[in-house]
């Protein structure tokens, strides 16, 4: 079972209409459907994963997240989720704004490029960092738009996106007092619960 499910579940209400962008094999949606009676869809680009979603009874739409999501109405979902995919998209800023347009609230998770190991890797070795969370070389990584927690929060601010809650964890999605003290240095993965600021 995915270790981020518990955190994400806490932010989803009973009966919510949920859209999961980059839903993979549908495990998260299936979990939410069975524990929280949610409805909605996943979106996924990989056909094998799509076929698995359907075997689970999870509704899934074949979609490249770099393509327009224009056709989805404003606030047509209670929660739009995007776990570990934002950094892989061509225009994360555009997509983040779409998330809070389509969803009343959005949940975004991504790896922290500001983790101390990453900083030391680049600082001392002078090479693009590789780690358990970032296992790729610079030329074959799907993570084309990596950022730190600080970077993300600046982007939110610039776009009028309010951070409702933030949970920073290690790769096993565990919290600790050390991480709480220095999240942008010790945290490996951040889970953000955000919404559009109402004017």
């Amino acid at each position: 079972m995915r270790s981020d499910l518990k955190h994400i579940s806490n932010w989803v209400k009973e009966g919510d209409r949920v859209l999961d962008l980059g839903c993979g094999d549908g495990e998260l949606l299936h979990h939410l459907q069975s524990t929280k009676k949610t409805t909605g869809y996943g979106m996924e680009i990989n056909p094998e994963q799509i076929v698995t979603c359907v075997a689970r009874g999870v509704d899934v739409i074949h979609q490249d997240l770099n393509d327009s999501l224009d056709y989805l109405d404003d606030a047509s979902f209670d929660t739009v989720m995007m776990t570990q995919s934002l950094q892989q998209t061509r225009h994360p800023d555009v997509l983040l704004n779409e998330l809070v347009r389509i969803g009343k609230r959005a949940i975004v998770t991504f790896p922290n490029f500001g983790h101390w190991t990453t900083r030391i890797y680049l600082g001392l070795r002078g090479m693009m960092p590789m780690s358990k969370t970032l296992p790729y070389r610079w030329y074959n990584t799907p993570n084309i738009h990596l950022c730190t927690f600080k970077d993300f929060e600046v982007l939110c601010k610039e776009n009028g996106i309010r951070i409702i809650q933030r949970t920073v964890v290690n790769t096993n999605h565990e919290e600790s007092w050390q991480i709480k003290l220095f999240p942008n240095i010790l945290g490996q993965v951040a889970l953000y619960h955000v919404e559009k600021e109402t004017v």
């Binding site: 209409r17 979603c53 359907v54 509704d59 739409i61 056709y71 109405d73 047509s76």
Partner: peptide, 8 residues
């Protein structure tokens, strides 16, 4: 999707 119907 706009009609909120289950679809894959």
């Amino acid at each position: 999707v706009r009609a909120q119907k289950p679809v894959s």
